[in-house]
């Protein structure tokens, strides 16, 4: 139990620290790296409470795809060294708006926590049967049997979005000369060299 607590506090501290660094770091690329660290530690926390599938999904989807995509965007847009004009320099209008939004979110959180803390009926109503099968196994058992229709339809939706992305953005450039290895290798002097008599003052038309 002690080891469990130690690990819990270890990951939690890292998660809180890195999420703070995400918003305070001056370098945007560093921010994204801290975001990745945050995702990883949250994923570890999920694994610790027994939701190993969720933890792995966070690792694969958020770290593997989303955060790396962020990183690419940040690097391509060249906003790495953004000036932190929020706190330094001229008066900004972001802070009051931000304060209002954060107070609202805090209130919402209080409501949520309050509702959960002082309403014991929710906790007692949970009738989940715990079994020895792991989460991933259980998901696999229903994903390909009872919920196969939803699963396949999600696949069709992804296929459609792929077709749409290609249809709306793919452009065939005209007039591009591509290298053709086979044609290059199979050339021989007789097919590629042409002898011409050059008339004076007229010249020859080379290539068109």
């Amino acid at each position: 139990m002690l080891v469990h607590s130690i690990f819990f506090y270890f990951f939690s501290v890292i998660a809180i620290f890195s999420s703070l660094m995400v918003i305070t770091s001056r370098n945007t690329v560093n921010s994204v790296f801290f975001l990745i660290l945050d995702f990883i530690s949250v994923g570890c926390l999920f694994i610790m409470v027994g939701a190993e599938f969720l933890g792995m999904i966070i690792l694969i989807v958020y770290v593997g795809a989303v955060a790396v995509l962020f990183l690419f965007v940040v690097m391509m847009l060249n906003v790495a060294e953004q000036k932190q004009s929020w706190f330094i320099g001229k008066k900004s209008t972001h802070i009051p708006t931000g304060l209002i939004v954060s107070v609202l979110i805090l209130l919402e959180l209080l409501v949520v926590v309050g509702g959960w803390k002082y309403k014991d009926s929710i906790m007692s109503s949970s009738t989940l049967e715990l079994s020895n099968i792991s989460n991933t196994h259980q998901l696999g058992l229903v994903m390909y049997t009872d919920y196969i229709l939803y699963f396949q339809m999600a696949g069709v939706i992804l296929l459609l979005s792929m077709i749409g992305a290609i249809l709306l953005t793919f452009r065939q450039r005209k007039g591009v000369k591509k290298q053709s290895y086979f044609n290059q290798i199979s050339r021989n002097p007789s097919s590629s060299i042409e002898l011409q008599e050059v008339e004076t003052n007229k010249g020859v038309k080379i290539d068109d």
């Binding site: 229709l149 939803y150 339809m153 069709v156 939706i157 459609l160 077709i163 749409g164 249809l167 709306l168």
Partner: peptide, 23 residues
């Protein structure tokens, strides 16, 4: 609800693409 929503999304996504097909 889930099947309904998936069907709706499949339909709407096709319609977005169709609306902008003359890109």
């Amino acid at each position: 609800i889930i099947l309904f929503y998936l069907g709706l999304e499949l339909q709407s996504l096709s319609l977005y693409i169709l609306a902008s097909i003359d890109r």
